[in-house]
Write a protein that binds this DNA or RNA. Structure first.
Length: 676
DNA sequence: GATTAAGGAATTTTT
DNA sequence: TTCCTTAATC
């Protein structure tokens, strides 16, 4: 045991108190930039140094990257090596659920080779069931697959009945309540038949296991300590899992900030963190209020911003970093001016010595960076984009993965469907028959005993051969299997889709990723549960030391920080998003989102918005629209910032400088917009 | 039963 | 606009 605790000296009093907390529940309310990651990492290191076996520590975070980062810091903090910390159980709720369910699949009533569907697959399966039940056949207004899945997911994750969920979030679907119930019942049965789980099932099965006392004793008994990061973004099922895990041992540490709760669309419930002291009696509550990240003027602005929130539980943060420039709110003539402003500032800061990867551009929705990306490419500035449309959603990538999935779980019908559609002469109807046949045998080689339609003769033999090869392939070498699949698929892919060259590169990337794995199952699990969230994550690392700018959705920026942050499209309609202004609760969450974005900045913060922007599908024809500054940039917030304009001219410019353009400019805009 | 053409709807954030 | 569903044709 290591009794030298000098390494705890670089913590402040509250952080230290949290780190050395003994037995029993602990809630750490950690404001933005208050050293939350550090505290949690040090606590892990501390527990290990006190003799807790690392494999008896469960550390749950929001992303796998966050877990890895924390474990790395834990190893660096103490003199305990990585060989100790790497034994910690660390990852997302979903990946931990997967791990547990692989161990206790029998008790959970799951086949040992169950596969996990991503959201798109779940939607497809929902659609299959929907059609089989003839729902929406004579009624075009029956909710679409995405909506159905959304309703289902909200009920499951929020542990709520249909009625309140429909009333609150989907009032236009209320009349379909009974039909939806039937649909969901059949959807659940179908998943069980096929041995597939959706994301929600991972949590749900885990929770159900824990509801059994013996299992709660068994699973909870594996862990001496449970630690949870970003607790404000957990949902009711996750809170239930934690209660189940801690029925016979109350060592639990949760860390979070109610002001940064931004996942209610995934049924996250702020009440989890607010009610923690009631849920876990005798909980110690520690608040971290010193901000180490941002300079004082930025903190002043973000404090003013969040003070507009109705319900607020944490206190104002303070910073010892007194120097620094005030945030700039930049009114741009149009999107092009915004792009130009941002790029010029990026290059200026770069010249001053701030590398690109210490600068980030943040936005509400993935597509809001489209025009900036074109500008960056034109100017040869390399960037990584996080969030938005993801790599695994691309059709060709899904195709490739489907091959692996049918070998892993021959009953996985959604995967089979994709695979079979690639053969000319096989359509939905034949595919359905084949799937029933193969699922019955639970062996992909059963293709051989199915008599294909004459039109499909050609591809059929090839596919059969492929399945043979994959089933007999070397188990520990998924990269070889991917290569074999590509020999079958590459040409078909090229015939099917545009952009074959770029897509082929993606497939090569997957092969490289596969090379890092020793089992197909693990590869598949990681691809669905911890998907690479930037295309560049996938690439091997030849360009590792190259510098790149970060572009990210605000959601994906959670937990990160940069020297310079640009929040773009800070106009009403984008932030808050038009899609989320139906009620006060949604608007509050958008405000917290703006707060998360702006608190990512260490030294420089720019908030920009274009007066006019292009609305692509607003009304059939492309059209630009005049917008207004985000309602969150109130008088108080603006008073703490420097107001700048870019590309505007004349009268509007002058009014901008005085911060009083609103009325005049609005009238002018209204009048001219009529003729646009 | 597969393929293609025409018509209709929608538009965020992510494990 | 694009994506997705449905209806008509092969």
């Amino acid at each position: 045991m290591n009794n030298n605790l000098e390494w705890l000296d670089d913590l402040n009093a509250q952080q230290r108190q949290a780190v050395v907390h003994g037995e029993g529940p602990l809630l750490v309310v950690a404001g933005a930039g208050s050293g939350k990651t550090k505290t949690l990492a040090y606590r892990v290191a501390y527990l290990i140094s006190r003799g807790v076996p690392p494999e008896r520590i469960l550390l749950m975070t929001f992303t796998r990257r966050a877990a890895e980062e924390m474990i790395k810091r834990a190893a660096a903090a103490s003199d305990r090596g990585a060989h100790m910390t790497s034994r910690v159980w660390g990852g997302t709720f979903h990946s931990m659920a997967n791990r547990i369910l692989r161990m206790y699949n029998q008790q959970a009533g799951l086949p040992s080779d169950f596969t996990v569907m991503d959201e798109a697959d779940a939607g497809d399966l929902m659609n299959v069931v929907r059609h089989e039940l003839n729902l929406g056949k004579n009624d075009k207004r029956f909710p679409r697959k995405g909506t159905c899945l959304g309703i289902y997911s909200r009920c499951v994750n929020g542990c709520e009945m249909m009625e309140p969920v429909l009333t609150r979030h989907y009032p236009w679907c209320l009349e379909y309540k009974e039909a939806l119930k039937t649909l969901f019942t059949n959807y659940v049965i179908r998943k069980q038949q096929r041995g597939v789980l959706d994301y929600d099932d991972l949590l749900l099965y885990w929770l159900q296991l824990l509801n059994n006392e013996a299992m709660a004793r068994e699973i909870g008994g594996r862990f001496d300590h449970v630690l949870v990061d970003e607790y404000q973004d957990t949902n009711t099922v996750q809170a239930g899992i934690l209660r189940g895990l801690r029925r016979f041992n109350t060592n639990i540490t949760v860390v979070g900030d109610d002001a940064q709760s931004i996942y209610s669309f995934r049924a996250a419930n702020v009440r989890n963190i607010l009610d923690f002291p009631q849920q876990f009696t005798g909980a110690t509550v520690i608040t971290l209020e010193q901000n180490y990240r941002s300079v004082e003027p930025i903190l002043e602005t973000t404090n003013r911003l969040i003070s507009q929130s109705r319900e607020r539980f944490t206190k104002d943060l303070w910073s010892a970093r007194r120097e620094g420039q005030r945030p700039k709110i930049v009114t741009c003539k149009d999107e092009a001016a915004q792009d130009r402003f941002v790029v010029e500032r990026i290059l200026e800061h770069y010249e001053e010595g701030i590398p690109l990867h210490k600068q980030a551009v943040l936005f509400r929705a993935g597509h809001l960076s489209d025009s900036l990306e074109i500008e960056l490419t034109r100017r040869n500035i390399s960037y990584h984009k996080y969030g938005g449309l993801r790599f695994l959603e691309a059709a060709h990538v899904k195709d490739l993965i489907s091959f692996l999935r049918v070998v892993e779980n021959p009953s996985d019908e959604i995967a089979w469907f994709r695979v079979l559609q690639m053969i000319d002469g096989i359509g939905p109807a034949t595919a359905g028959k084949i799937i029933a046949h193969v699922a019955k045998a639970h062996d992909p080689r059963a293709l051989k005993t199915f008599k294909p339609p004459a039109a499909a003769k050609e591809g059929w033999a090839d596919l059969g051969q492929l399945m043979d090869d994959l089933v007999t392939a070397e188990e520990g070498n998924p990269a070889a299997q991917v290569q074999r699949i590509r020999s079958f698929y590459d040409d078909r892919m090229a015939l099917r889709y545009e952009n074959a060259q770029a897509r082929r590169r993606d497939l090569e990337h997957i092969e490289q990723v596969a090379a890092r794995y020793k089992s197909r199952r693990q590869l598949l699990t990681d691809l669905t549960l911890d998907p690479p969230n930037s295309t560049s994550d996938i690439a091997a690392n030849p360009l590792k030391d190259e510098d790149w700018l970060v572009l990210s959705t605000i959601h994906s920026a959670k937990g990160c920080e940069w020297d310079v942050v640009y929040v773009i499209h800070a106009s009403d309609g984008c932030l808050p998003s038009d899609m989320a202004t139906d009620n006060d609760r949604e608007i509050e969450e958008e405000l917290r989102l703006a707060y998360v974005a702006m608190t990512r900045a260490r030294n420089f913060l720019y908030v920009t918005w274009p007066l006019r922007y292009y609305q692509k599908w607003g009304s059939y024809t492309d059209k630009h629209v005049y917008s207004q500054m985000s309602r969150f940039l109130s008088d108080e917030v603006r008073a703490s910032c420097e107001m700048v304009s870019c590309g505007t001219s004349g009268y509007a410019d002058e009014m901008d400088q005085r911060g009083g353009y609103d009325i005049v400019e609005q009238v002018r805009r209204q009048i001219s917009s009529q003729w646009d």
